[in-house]
């Protein structure tokens, strides 16, 4: 019985990490630029797909993953430069449509370049499951959880120690003021896109051995990632990551104890109730509405 519960939590945390990393990307871009980036799931897809492609082309696994993440980062920066910057003065909803267009393009390109098949990346280290108190854990899940923690830690340091991180935070508080004190808001915007593309791509690469990947995995991850970001209180990166983990565990427990047919509905119902009770997310700051 306890083994079952532990198993649900473990699988929930693993899936939740994917949601969390996607949500993290949503938040970073939203904070710095005010854009909800609907192409965030596509960055995750790019990370996974490019890792597989480079690995199949003969690169060893670490090199393939690193190169894939670097390439996705470049794509993220390019998206900002080519699609977002030309419309930066547009309303929020217009920007959302732009990112939807971008996501359709990226998905289409991936489909044309790499086909429609589902693909798999080999495990980073071994496929033998590890027993943990009656449940079992794939070594890859440890990779996923470990890397997610590392990324969170890295981002925390980046935002609190580095000048660029502080610049991005400044943009998050007040873009105009940041601009006035000499921060290049444009560069920060590009940096935020690059960073969240990198975060997403890392997520895509470390999950590909467990969940497999295909050109269209970004759609579902984008949706769940957005849900996780809002659940965590949009604007708080660590809340977003927590939101992802909570969503993953909720789904898993729902499937285990209630009904696997309604597990997604169940997770969303809980999410709705939470929103109605706490309208600014679990970890969101109460922002005073400016009149």
């Amino acid at each position: 019985m306890f083994g079952g519960l532990l198993q649900y939590v473990i699988s929930g945390l693993t899936v939740g990490s994917a949601y969390g990393l996607t949500a993290l990307g949503f938040t970073m871009i939203f904070n710095t630029t005010g854009v909800i980036n609907f192409a965030q799931g596509e960055f995750v897809m790019l990370g996974g797909m490019m890792s597989v492609m480079l690995h199949q082309a003969g690169l060893n696994l670490p090199a393939a993953v690193i190169l894939a993440v670097a390439a996705a980062t470049a794509v993220g920066a390019a998206v900002e430069r080519l699609a977002i910057r030309p419309v930066r003065r547009a309303t929020a909803i217009n920007l959302v449509i732009v990112t939807i267009g971008v996501s359709i393009c990226l998905r289409g390109l991936a489909m044309l370049a790499w086909g429609k098949d589902t693909l798999r990346l080999p495990n980073f280290s071994g496929a033998a499951p590890l027993p943990v108190f009656g449940a079992s854990l794939m070594p890859q899940s440890l990779w996923v959880l470990g890397v997610t923690l590392l990324i969170l830690l890295g981002l925390r340091l980046f935002f609190s120690r580095s000048i660029h991180g502080k610049g991005m935070l400044a943009c998050a508080y007040q873009r105009k003021a940041a601009y006035l004190v000499g921060i290049s808001v444009e560069r920060m915007a590009m940096l935020s896109f690059a960073l969240s593309a990198a975060t997403g791509a890392v997520g895509g690469a470390i999950l590909a051995p467990l969940t497999m990947t295909s050109y269209d995995v970004g759609v579902m991850l984008g949706l769940k990632g957005f849900a996780a970001a809002v659940l965590g209180g949009l604007g708080n990166p660590f809340g977003a990551a927590a939101g992802g983990l909570i969503l993953g565990v909720l789904e898993s427990l729902g499937a285990g104890y209630v009904s696997s047919a309604y597990k997604d509905a169940l997770a969303f119902i809980i999410l709705l109730v939470l929103l109605f009770v706490k309208p600014s997310g679990l970890f969101g700051r109460k922002s005073a509405e400016r009149v």
Partner: peptide
């Protein structure tokens, strides 16, 4: 048990069956 066409982890369903 049921799973969604886009689901990426079915350990919950299988654990229940187990």
């Amino acid at each position: 048990e049921v799973y969604g066409p886009k689901d990426t982890d079915m350990t919950a369903q299988l654990t229940k069956i187990k």
